[in-house]
Nucleic acid binder design. Sequence first.
DNA 1: TTCTGTGCAAATGATTTGCAGCCAG
DNA 2: CTGGCTGCAAATCATTTGCACAGAA
Lengths: 144, 144
Amino acid sequence: MKDPKSVFSEYIERNNLKMTPQRHLILDVFLKTEEHMASEELYDVVREHDPAVGQATVYRTLKLLSDAGIAREVHFGDGVTRYEPSQSDQHHDHLICESCGTNIEVLDERIEKLQEELATKHDYVLTGHSMYLYGLCPKCRKGS
Amino acid sequence: MKDPKSVFSEYIERNNLKMTPQRHLILDVFLKTEEHMASEELYDVVREHDPAVGQATVYRTLKLLSDAGIAREVHFGDGVTRYEPSQSDQHHDHLICESCGTNIEVLDERIEKLQEELATKHDYVLTGHSMYLYGLCPKCRKGS
DNA sequence: TTCTGTGCAAATGATTTGCAGCCAG
DNA sequence: CTGGCTGCAAATCATTTGCACAGAA
């Protein structure tokens, strides 16, 4: 299992792209965050390191990381596209509190298995999935 | 099990809102479509019946239907919010072909059960969920 | 040198909102 | 009557794109 940086380098090279300081910085920042980051949030952090970087570059680079398989798009249902590191062996789903927005990452192998089965039943080849569970976390239940 | 129209009437009354011909028309059109409709698509159909209706009214009414529990928002991951009738006893998830976009509605009780279980394990009270399976349909597999 | 990448600002696409007039209750 | 509703256009919001310049390879 190789680290994201070399994956990126390889991707860059394979596609005749160029490694730039901006891309390097954005990748670093991205990898450092455990949260699910929106492009704009990441932009804020990036500009703390280099105020000259533009929004568009962050958007473009995030899409690049996604194409390279390093980042994965995540949609919570508000209009914003978030990204998470896609260490592909660490898949998970989301359990989100409807009241405070707290987001727990969850995983259940039995569900994964059944999803695969369900797709096969319909003669589909499953390439991916996203599952979001919405509910109320213990804290918010007490609060009300 | 009461029909959506009376559910809407009750909702209207309970919240001191008003029943207008536009809302009536939009609800009718919405209920007649089996597809997952984006606001804009629905707007096209609506204006065939009454060209005077405005976009904003469709957006506003769809949100209203959602609040009333008659419609449910559906997000496929492109930027568009779609709606589907939420006859609450007919929940289903989605199996989407990544190539042609074909969307099959699926349901697996075992998965539903496990989702509930998973939320409980984290001390959440589950209020809803959305699950999207992405894959390749048989037709698109052959086509390539 | 030669393209690809970048920042900026303008463009886009979906959705929202302000407002003056309209109309259901 | 009156406060909610509507259509229209202008305003947002997130994201994309056109462009001239900058800088990796």
